[in-house]
Design a protein around this nucleic acid. Structure first.
Lengths: 202, 202
DNA sequence: GTCTATACGTCGATAGAC
DNA sequence: GTCTATCGACGTATAGAC
């Protein structure tokens, strides 16, 4: 990963600077949770937060890196993301996740924007974010699948890695469909996937 | 839908204008197929196509509408999209689709960008595109699923609408994961979904 | 109708004052 | 560390040539 490349480099005790950055990040997260990914210019965010756009640049390096930081921080706080509860089925965990996402639509929009940006060339911050996030979430999900297989809740004849990729893809895609059309059978489709993956009754 | 709101309104025989618009669209599609969704400013596209940016505005109304037109036209040409062959399994059809997408990565990027834009507020053209596309593709897939169920290739105890949403979501999501990391088990995950949906051998 | 020229306001980025 | 000033590029809008 080679460390941050642009930051004020909080080596030593730049406690003031770090705290200020955190303050700004906190405000920015609120802004995003409220209104969506729209109206997200560096200048608009700066005004909302109460600093100049140059100050945001100073702390985050670029708009793209600010967006990544906002999403990652909100994820870290558990505004997002499945819990570590190992006793639920992988799909159950995702369902809880999508449910909580309905209340923070702005962050879901931000997630979609970041992933779409990552697919383009010349956006290293978004690319790095999306790549490492998918790798992490997929590994996490694969572990969860193996656990469920050992517990006899998921059929044993499927590859955990493939299941992980499939389940995460389905979750992302269903969330998109649901945001565009609330009548899309998001819950039914997730329940179906759960059913399909369930270990056959002996 | 209330019709187009901005267009030169090709009613009557404005053959010249329509042809010119088509010419521009053709060139724009090439540009997108080659390089990705990046470098997609109205002005850059105009330069590449060989007209002024004002001319693009004249024919397409806005950048967003141009992007939608480019994607829809390339889709219509069958650069994209599953065929109407009713004898393959739904997932097989999607697999063919994702395979063909690998050769036109730029258009896939464009698709992702359009969908992400549609999730934000204040982008009616992208929203309309994404909403109607999902509705259409989902209905198409549901029909295909019913057909496969009647033919005994897909288990009969699943809701076709839910399967359709699930399969499309998985396809979109897996494509994203694959674009970000070619080692993501896209094929394995699609094959798995196919296997899970297959009617149990009597 | 088709298209150019031109201008407006905003954007991300940068430089330099303090 | 945070500001103001300024830059080039952007999407959009309009007037008018043809």
């Amino acid at each position: 990963m080679s460390g941050d490349e642009h930051q004020p480099a909080p080596r030593g005790s730049y406690a003031k600077g770090v705290a200020r950055r955190q303050e700004i990040l906190d405000r920015a997260i609120e802004v995003f949770a409220q209104r969506g990914s729209d109206r997200t210019s560096l200048r608009a965010i700066a005004e909302e937060v109460g600093v100049t756009h140059a100050a945001l640049k100073h702390y985050f390096g670029s708009l793209e890196e600010l967006l990544v930081a906002v999403y990652q921080e909100s994820e870290r706080r558990g505004d997002d993301e499945p819990s570590a509860d190992q006793d639920e089925t992988p799909v159950e965990a995702l369902r809880r996740w999508t449910e909580s996402n309905r209340e923070v639509q702005g962050l879901v929009q931000l997630y979609s924007t970041l992933v779409a940006t990552a697919l383009e060339e010349g956006h290293p911050a978004a690319r790095e974010f999306a790549t490492s996030r998918f790798a992490r979430v997929r590994a996490d999900m694969a572990r969860r699948v193996r656990h469920s297989q050992e517990a006899g809740r998921i059929r044993a004849d499927v590859d955990p890695e493939a299941v992980a990729a499939l389940v995460i893809a389905a979750s992302d895609g269903l969330q998109t469909q649901w945001l565009l059309d609330a009548s899309a059978p998001q819950d039914a489709a997730l329940a179906l996937l759960d059913q399909l993956l369930a270990a056959p009754r002996a």
